[in-house]
Simulated assay, not measured.
Amino acid sequence: MSGHPATVPPQLSVEPFSGSRAIAAGLVTRRMLNGPAWRHLLHDVYVHTDSYDPDDHRMWCLAVAARLPRNAAIYGLSAAYLWGVDLLPHRKRAVPVYVAVPNKARPDPHPRIRYANLILDLDNDITSLTGMPVTTEVRTAFDLGRSLPRADALVALDAILRRRTCTTAALAAYVDVHPGRRGVRQVRELLTLAEPLSESPMESRLRLLLHDAGLPKPTPQYEIRSPASNGGVRFVARVDLAYPQWKIAIEYEGDHHRARAVFRRDVTRFNALRAAGWLALRFTADDVLRRSGQLVQTVRQAIAERAG
């Protein structure tokens, strides 16, 4: 509970705000802002001390939005975060807010803000999201797809497309009308590989590894069924990636699979896959990130054995 309830207007108690505007509106005084009830975030931007969280990226986005110049917008990883796609590092305290500003803008530098000079169409590239100027989902996907390292860019595209409010067709159309932008070749390539059904960053990276190795394209989130004793069919499992023609299932195993209850379910599940005639290949983050050559060879060998 705040120790200064009488001095905290409700409209200033939760989100960051412009100090000069609050003073002009008669909500606070400069002396009050300098007191213990408020935290100073950026130049002329404050937040109530009870709402201050240094790891809250949305709080920092709101703080930045309170001082953005015209035609500027939150973009890139920060825009994706606000759209519900969290691609930021797990520990967000040192992560800056990514801001796109017009080419001639020269805003004051700040360690919590990373500026980029970009050409944004005010009508088509910027929208308002909970009161903040943010690049649209399509523009956000376009920027991440062309600026991030290739594997990270595919992770971003998969995650944004998974929301279903930004489609592959819409992004492809945007790319077609912006052919000369830097990095557009990477976006075009990754659009042919992007998969809205991908459910995790490591699944996206695993899929890209298989593609780059020249292996056949697997089917994502494949439901395996087998004949039941009553003459019908029964559901066996849904696997991350599959080669149905060879009955090969490929699974990414995150850390949560180490939990005892999950491990027990996994044992039952993989025994069921084996009984249905499927070969299940299980890989971890170390396999994807550090032993990719061995991973590819394992999949290649499994295909050769099953196809032969």
Rank of each mutant, 00 (worst) to 15 (best):
I113Y: 02
A172M: 07
N124S: 14
Q186N: 12
T168Q: 13
F142K: 02
R112D: 01
A159K: 08
D108V: 10
T165S: 06
V175M: 02
Q186M: 13
R182I: 14
L154W: 04
D152Y: 03
T136R: 02
P133T: 08
P133R: 13
G145S: 05
A153K: 02
R112G: 07
I160W: 03
A170W: 10
A173C: 12
L157K: 01
H110Q: 09
P149N: 08
A141I: 03
I126F: 03
G183T: 15
L161P: 01
A169M: 04
L157W: 00
L154R: 12
L148R: 07
L171D: 07
Y174M: 08
P107D: 08
T168V: 15
R106H: 10
G145H: 06
R188E: 14
S147M: 10
L161M: 13
H110S: 04
V155L: 02
V177T: 15
A159W: 03
P111W: 00
S128Y: 09
A159D: 07
D152K: 01
A153T: 01
L129R: 08
V155F: 01
C166G: 04
Y115S: 03
I113M: 04
R112A: 12
A173Q: 09
V138H: 00
T167N: 03
Q186W: 05
R188L: 09
P102T: 13
L122M: 15
R150C: 14
R150S: 10
T130G: 08
G183L: 01
A151K: 06
G145Q: 04
T165H: 13
F142C: 03
L148N: 07
Y174V: 02
